[in-house]
C-alpha cells in the first residue's frame, strides 16, 4: 500500500475530462479530494490524497503524466521559507491539522509536511509571510 498527497495541474484541454475517476476505475486507486480550483477554459488545480497498491499507484501516476497533467508532491506545494520564519508560533493554533507545532523544549516551530492538507490558512496568518504556496 502506498498513500500520498499530490498536487495535479491540468492543462485546459483536460479540465472537463473524468481523469480522476479513471484513476479509480482502471488502477483501483482511492482518492480523496482536498482542494480543487477549476476554471473552465483555463487550467485546473487539484489536490488529492491518493492511495493503492504501489504498482497501481505508479501506473496511475504515469497515466496522468502521459496525458500531460503536471504531478507534484504536496510537500513541494506548501513551503515554509526558513529564512523568514522566526519561530514566533502565531501559526500553531491556526493550522487545523497540527502540521505546524511548537516544540515546548526547543521553542522551535516544526512543519510536518505530511500532515499538511494545503488549506492555506497559515498563508495570510503568518505575520512574517514565511508560509508560501508554490503551485
Amino acid at each position: 500500500m502506498i498513500s500520498k498527497r499530490i498536487v495535479l495541474k491540468f492543462p485546459h484541454r483536460l479540465v472537463d475530462q473524468p481523469i480522476v475517476c479513471n484513476l479509480a476505475k482502471y488502477f483501483d486507486l482511492e482518492f480523496n479530494i482536498l482542494k480543487a480550483y477549476i476554471i473552465p477554459k483555463e487550467e485546473g488545480l487539484l489536490i488529492l490524497g491518493l492511495s493503492g497498491e504501489e504498482e497501481n499507484y505508479n501506473k496511475g501516476i504515469n497515466y496522468l503524466k502521459k496525458l500531460g497533467v503536471i504531478v507534484q508532491s504536496l510537500s513541494q506545494g506548501i513551503i515554509r521559507n526558513s529564512t523568514r520564519c522566526t519561530h514566533c508560533g502565531v501559526c500553531i493554533t491556526v493550522c487545523p491539522t497540527e502540521a505546524l507545532v511548537l516544540d515546548t523544549h526547543t521553542r522551535k516551530v516544526h512543519f510536518y509536511e505530511n500532515k499538511c492538507i494545503a488549506c492555506e490558512l497559515c498563508i495570510p496568518a503568518c505575520p512574517l509571510r514565511a508560509m508560501e504556496v508554490h503551485y
Binding site: 522566526t86 519561530h87 514566533c88 508560533g89 502565531v90 501559526c91 500553531i92 493554533t93 491556526v94 511548537l102 526547543t106 521553542r107 522551535k108 505575520p127
Partner: peptide, 10 residues
C-alpha cells in the same frame, strides 16, 4: 491552546 507572537528562540 496557546500560541506566542514573540519568538523565544530569537
Amino acid at each position: 491552546p496557546t500560541a506566542p507572537l514573540s519568538s523565544y528562540t530569537k
